[in-house]
C-alpha cells in the first residue's frame, strides 16, 4: 500500500541523504556516532532473519541495503572522517537504551524464541535510537540543514508506517501490536523535532532550537 511504499522510500532516502552529506562535505560534524551504532544493531538484529526467512526479493534487497549502508556509515565515521569535537558532545548513555530494550524484548515478544526476541529487541531499540542524535542537536542548538532533512526522513518512515498498519488492520485483519506500539513511541519522540523542522527548516530558516 501507498503508506508502506512511502515509508520505505523515506527510509531509503534518509540513508542516501546521510551518505551524500558525509561524502560531499567530507565531514561528520553534528552526526551522532552513537545513534548510527544503534542503527547497525537495530538492522543486524532485525534483518539477519533474511538468512532463514524469505519474504520477497524486494524485502531481501532492502534488508541487505540497510545492513550494509549502516555499517559503512559507522566505518566512515570512525575511520575516514573521525571528528573528536563531535564525539565529545555525543555523550548520551546508550547502554541504558540497549539494556532497556533487551529487558522489554524479553517481556514483550510473540514467542519466547531467539529470533522473535531479537525482532522485538530491534523494534524497541529503533524506537529510541534517535535519542543520542536529538540530544546532540539540543546541546549544539543548531544543525546543518541536510542533517535535519536526514532526521526528518528517518522519522517520517516510521510515522508513515502507522497509517500502513491501520490500512493493513482494515484490509487484512493484520495487527502487529509490538510494531504499532513501538512505532507510536518512536513518532512521539520525533514529534518535537517534527514541529521545529516544520516551523523553521521548511520555511527557509536555519535549524535553531528556540
Amino acid at each position: 500500500n501507498i503508506f508502506r511504499a512511502a515509508g520505505d522510500l523515506s527510509h531509503l532516502i534518509s540513508i542516501l541523504i546521510l551518505l551524500n552529506t558525509i561524502q560531499k562535505s567530507r565531514s561528520i560534524a553534528g552526526i551522532s556516532l552513537k545513534t548510527q551504532i544503534l542503527y547497525v544493531l537495530v538492522f543486524l538484529t532485525r534483518y539477519l532473519d533474511l538468512t532463514y526467512r524469505y519474504v520477497s526479493i524486494y524485502n531481501t534487497l532492502m534488508k541487505l541495503f540497510f545492513i550494509s549502508s549502516s555499517i559503512y556509515i559507522v566505518y566512515l565515521m570512525i575511520y575516514k572522517f573521525k571528528n573528536t569535537e563531535t564525539e565529545q558532545i555525543d555523550t548520551f548513555p546508550i547502554e541504558y537504551l540497549i539494556g532497556g530494550s533487551f529487558i522489554l524484548s524479553l517481556i514483550f515478544n510473540y514467542k519466547f524464541q531467539f529470533g522473535e526476541i531479537l525482532w522485538s529487541f530491534s523494534l524497541w531499540l529503533e524506537s529510541v535510537a534517535i535519542l543520542p542524535q536529538l540530544f546532540m542537536l539540543q546541546r549544539t542548538g543548531e544543525a546543518r540543514t541536510l542533517t535535519t532533512h536526514y532526521i526528518f526522513a528517518l522519522g517520517a518512515y516510521r510515522t508513515l508506517y502507522i497509517p500502513n498498519w491501520i490500512f493493513r488492520w482494515i484490509s487484512e485483519g493484520r495487527v502487529d501490536y509490538l510494531a504499532i506500539f513501538t512505532g507510536i513511541v518512536q513518532t512521539i519522540i520525533y514529534s518535537d523535532f517534527f514541529y521545529i523542522y516544520y516551523h523553521r527548516v521548511l520555511k527557509g530558516f536555519k535549524f535553531e532550537l528556540p
Binding site: 520505505d8 534483518y47 526467512r53 514467542k111 525482532w119 508506517y161 502487529d176
Partner: peptide, 10 residues
Amino acid sequence: EEQTIVHDEL
C-alpha cells in the same frame, strides 16, 4: 493454536 505475526515489513 497461537497465532504468530509474519514479519514481512522493514
